[in-house]
C-alpha cells in the first residue's frame, strides 16, 4: 500500500504536478453544476451552459490526445458533459422550447 501511495505521489501526472490539479479544478464545474441543480431554472444561464456543453465534448477528446494522457481530465469532462446537458434541458424546458405543440385542431 505504501509503495502504491509513493508511486502515485511521484507519478508524472501525480499531485506534485499541474497535470493533476488542472482536472481537479475542472471538477469544480461538475460540483457547481450539481449545486445549481437545486436552483430554479430561471437562474440558469443559457449562454454559459451551452458553452459548457460544447467545451466538455471537445475536451474529452483533448484529454485523450494530450501527452501525458489525462484520464482524470477525461472522466471529469464526461461527468461535466452529463451535468451541463441536464442543466441545458432544464433551462430549455423553462424557456418553453420543449413543450409539446398543441394540435392545431384543439386551438
Amino acid at each position: 500500500m505504501s509503495t502504491a501511495v509513493k508511486a502515485f505521489l511521484n507519478s508524472p501526472v501525480g499531485p506534485k504536478t499541474t497535470h493533476f490539479w488542472g482536472p481537479v479544478a475542472n471538477w469544480g464545474f461538475v460540483l457547481a453544476g450539481l449545486v445549481d441543480m437545486n436552483k430554479p431554472p430561471e437562474m440558469i444561464s443559457g449562454n454559459m451552459t451551452a458553452a459548457m456543453c460544447v467545451y466538455s465534448g471537445l475536451f474529452m477528446r483533448f484529454a485523450w490526445m494530450v501527452q501525458p494522457r489525462n484520464y482524470l481530465l477525461l472522466a471529469c469532462h464526461a461527468s461535466n458533459e452529463s451535468v451541463q446537458l441536464y442543466q441545458m434541458s432544464r433551462w430549455a424546458r423553462a424557456q418553453g422550447y420543449l413543450e409539446k405543440k398543441e394540435p392545431e385542431a384543439q386551438q
Binding site: 499541474t18 481537479v24 501525458p68
Partner: peptide, 23 residues
C-alpha cells in the same frame, strides 16, 4: 451563480499553468 463563477475563475488560473506543462 457563485459556484459556477468560482469554478470558472479557479479553473482559468490553474489551467494557465497546465497549458504550459503539457505536450
Amino acid at each position: 451563480s457563485y459556484p459556477q463563477q468560482v469554478a470558472v475563475a479557479c479553473t482559468g488560473v490553474i489551467w494557465s499553468r497546465y497549458s504550459m506543462v503539457i505536450t
